[in-house]
Amino acid sequence: MARADRERWDRRYADAGPVEPAPPLALRGHEDLLPPAGRALDVACGRGQVAVWLALRGLTVDAVDVSPVGLGAVAELAERHGVADRVHRHHHDLDAGLPVPGAYQVVVCQRFRDPALYPRLTGALAPGGLLAVTVLSRVGGDGPFRAEPGELATAFAGLEVLDHREGDGEAVLLARAR
């Protein structure tokens, strides 16, 4: 990722208001599928709403982002909610792949789209692990960085798809490794 992109995210996170833990969009309504323990990977974690939410549910989370400002917010949120020991922050450019080897019981990638990363997300899953992906979509939306119709279903066809929907400019996929 270009330095300008990292700086843009740093500014965006520095100017943003406070956040609270929240489930990944792809898991909403399916929270019962979440394992009570194990490892989770939050790719492009931003300010940590999902990472801390996962840690509050008993998972040990590797939170990865290119923004040091975002990762600072992750640390503060995790500390405030008493799960700092279960949220491990990784400053990393995802253009270089994933910084921590799998196997994860849960892998989340929310609002970050890089089709070249899709096979690595699948490869990071433990057997039976959950993958929760949400990206901007051309289905009901326009603009840059959007997935083509059916992109997630095609990219993750080797997984057991538990939920897949596209519309209103968003594509969501929840799947399980076989």
Rank of each mutant, 00 (worst) to 15 (best):
A16L: 07
V135E: 04
G129I: 04
R8L: 13
C45K: 01
P21W: 00
R11T: 11
L25Y: 05
E31V: 10
L33Y: 05
L174M: 04
G70E: 02
A78D: 13
A116W: 11
V50Y: 10
A40G: 13
G97I: 11
H92F: 08
P127I: 11
G58M: 12
A126K: 08
P36R: 15
L98E: 03
V43Q: 06
Y104I: 02
D163S: 08
A78T: 04
V135N: 02
H164W: 15
L130Q: 02
R39N: 06
A147T: 01
R80W: 02
G169D: 10
P24Q: 03
A14C: 03
P101Y: 06
D142F: 13
P127S: 09
V100G: 12
R12L: 12
F156S: 05
G158L: 03
G169A: 04
L34N: 02
V83R: 03
L71W: 06
L54Y: 07
Y13S: 12
D85G: 15
V172T: 14
L33E: 06
A153H: 04
W53G: 10
L27T: 05
L136D: 14
V66A: 15
L54N: 11
A44Y: 05
V66N: 09
R8C: 02
A124N: 05
Q49E: 15
G158D: 13
L59H: 08
V64L: 12
D10P: 04
A55E: 13
R178I: 00
D32I: 00
P36E: 12
E170M: 13
F145W: 13
D85P: 09
V106F: 14
V106W: 09
P24E: 06
V43R: 01
A16K: 08
V139T: 14
A153F: 02
G29V: 10
A44K: 07
F145N: 10
H91R: 15
R176A: 09
D95S: 15
E31Y: 09
L71F: 06
R176W: 05
A116T: 13
R11D: 15
D10C: 04
Y118F: 15
E79L: 14
V87P: 10
